[in-house]
């Protein structure tokens, strides 16, 4: 086993109980635009322990087997949202997915579904970022506050209205899970709609009317058919499907009540 791991790995393995390491086949989606006409898969044999994540498997490949492999990662602890991949066909954060759960089968790693691939496992996130910017994902104060005004207090009930939606880490797993986004990427998508709700549901925010224009559009909440897979794959316990459904109600009220309320008073 030591020989198979190569000289660079020997030192590390000496004190990680090499004998216990098993090997798993990781099948990786490869696409290097400078010399590949189309993507292909390559299989690598990777030693792993019980606590080896899929991300660490990829890092092993890059460090020891093929340095040209490209993938995004940063924090290794499900906080940064960078390392989302399709793992055996399901959207996962590769840092919180473990090789032991796939052994003795193989692991197939692909870039997140529904996004254009730039290189290997790296997708182009521009569409998501453009939509995120479009909802102004920050608090718009009702009126400017001076430091002397002190903190803007909220009751526990006001906090509960938006707290879960504020846990989003922009990892895009919900976009890879959403069949509607896959069919038509004009759809605003689960993550951005959940974040939109996070600000609209915040008692300190004053930009709801502006964001409702995004909600009310065909590409807003009405592009969703409530499949619900987005909420299943979210690694942070956010329920985008709930955010969308609450906003279907908001949008319906907005649709009918606009005939009854004077202009400018609607929220």
């Amino acid at each position: 086993m030591l020989a198979a791991l190569g000289p660079n790995h020997r030192h590390r393995q000496d004190h990680t109980m090499t004998e216990r390491l098993k090997e798993i086949n990781i099948e990786v989606f490869r696409y290097l635009p400078e010399h590949d006409d189309e993507p292909h898969f390559e299989t690598y044999k990777v030693p792993f322990a019980d606590n080896t994540s899929v991300l660490e498997g990829l890092q092993y490949i890059k460090d020891h087997l093929d340095g040209s492999l490209a993938f995004r990662w940063s924090c290794r602890m499900a906080i940064c949202g960078s390392c989302g991949k399709m793992v055996n066909g399901a959207p996962q954060l590769s840092c919180r997915t473990f090789l032991r759960d796939y052994y003795p089968g193989k692991v197939r790693i692909e870039p997140l579904d529904h996004f254009p691939v730039e290189r290997d496992l790296i997708v182009d996130q521009s569409d998501f970022l453009r939509k995120l910017e479009g909802i102004k994902p920050y608090l718009h104060s009702v009126k400017p506050r001076a430091i002397a005004d002190g903190p803007h207090h909220q009751t526990p009930a006001e906090l509960a209205e938006y707290e879960q939606f504020s846990q989003c880490i922009n990892c895009l797993l919900c976009y890879a899970a959403c069949p509607q986004y896959g069919l038509d990427n004009e759809f605003t998508g689960p993550g951005v709609l959940a974040l939109l709700h996070r600000y609209n549901a915040d008692s300190r925010d004053a930009a709801k009317a502006e964001r409702m224009q995004v909600v009310n559009a065909e590409q807003g909440v009405w592009g969703c058919t409530l499949v619900g897979y987005c909420s299943e794959v979210c690694p942070k316990g956010v329920d985008p499907a709930l955010a969308v459904n609450r906003n279907k109600i908001c949008s319906t009220k907005d649709y009918f009540l606009r005939f009854l309320t004077p202009r400018g008073t609607r929220v």
Partner: peptide
């Protein structure tokens, strides 16, 4: 952002 008429059908 064209308003959808979906609320009627929904």
């Amino acid at each position: 952002h064209k308003r959808s008429n979906e609320p009627v059908f929904w």
